[in-house]
């Protein structure tokens, strides 16, 4: 083996020869990365999942004072038709101590920043603490100390604008991006 040692002599251009090995090694790493990427990327949402990334919903089907849940991207979304009293309460609470301060008026904005409709509150039905579904109107449950939503898992209280007021959740209920396609039809997910 002694006569075959790689380090024995470097009489005819050591740099060039070493460069070949370095280049070969680099190509091996590059090739590995090329194979690795499809193996990783396949776990991202597939085309059929992405095709279901937006839904259209007719708000006229939700009577005042009630709430429906629609499925969007595999999870429910609250569509709450608020009463005038609830909206008023939410506006009043703009000045209260809020963990995640946000004006009620901003809770009903469309994806492009323009105003939506104050009576229709559209939010992901997922407590920002650990993802449980908070209890809302029409479900015969405790609505929390602020009359909005109450998460039974760890006791988070949300007000009538879906803002976190008490309990472990860090943020207000998330408002998904949506736009009004007509007076009553919204497209959720844009």
């Amino acid at each position: 083996m002694s006569d075959t040692s790689l380090n024995s002599t470097h009489e005819d251009g050591p740099t060039r020869r070493d460069m070949i090995h370095v280049a070969t090694g680099a190509m091996m790493v590059g090739g590995g990365a090329m194979v690795a990427w499809p193996l990783v990327h396949q776990m991202n949402p597939a085309a059929d999942t992405l095709a279901m990334a937006s839904i259209e919903f007719d708000l006229a089907t939700v009577p005042e004072g009630s709430q429906v849940k629609v499925m969007w991207r595999g999870s429910p979304v609250f569509i709450r038709h608020r009463t005038a009293a609830e909206i008023e309460q939410a506006n009043k609470d703009d000045t209260a101590t809020l963990r995640d301060p946000e004006a009620n008026a901003n809770r009903t904005k469309q994806a492009d920043g323009s105003d939506g409709k104050a009576q229709y509150l559209i939010m992901e039905a997922s407590c920002t603490h650990a993802g449980c579904i908070p209890v809302g109107v029409g479900e015969n449950g405790y609505l929390g100390a602020f009359g909005g939503w109450f998460c039974p898992c760890h006791g988070s209280h949300y007000d009538t604008a879906g803002r976190i007021r008490q309990g472990p959740a860090p943020l207000n209920l998330i408002v998904p991006k949506y736009v009004y396609l007509s007076d009553t039809v919204v497209k959720i997910g844009v």
């Binding site: 990427w37 499809p38 193996l39 990327h41 396949q42 776990m43 597939a46 059929d48």
Partner: peptide, 30 residues
Amino acid sequence: VLAMHYVAHVDFAFASIAHIMRDVNYGWLL
């Protein structure tokens, strides 16, 4: 990784292969 998308059911196996070939990212390659 194919097993992450394949469905071992007589009604869905064939379609799940089509799903892999058409919709899954790089599914056709894998």
